[in-house]
Amino acid sequence: MMSNDPMYDDWINQRRAIDSPDGLADCVMATVQETEVRRKQSLLLRLAQRIEESRLARWTACMAAFLVGSSPFLYLAYVAQLLVF
């Protein structure tokens, strides 16, 4: 169509000849490793987002937190001899 024009072909060819710069892969890999670390750190955050989606999950999370966090009261009850293990 336009390929009868050699200057146009040259233009296309030089655009086809563009090469990726050196070190691009290194940069990508460095960032990727970093994201991996960050992704592991934000695992809790993503878990939180999951829980957020359902009312039941939110209640479960609160109850689980209550069970863990109220353990000093359990110990208190044991010390007060109200609970016998």
Binding site: I18, D19, S20, A25, V28, M29, E36
Partner: peptide, 22 residues
């Protein structure tokens, strides 16, 4: 195996960069 990703980057960086640059 995160490091395996390098093989894909090496394989496709040239066309992707060329496309973006163009």
């Amino acid at each position: 195996k995160t490091s395996e990703y390098r093989r894909l980057v090496d394989r496709y960086q040239k066309p992707i960069f060329r496309f973006v640059h163009n």
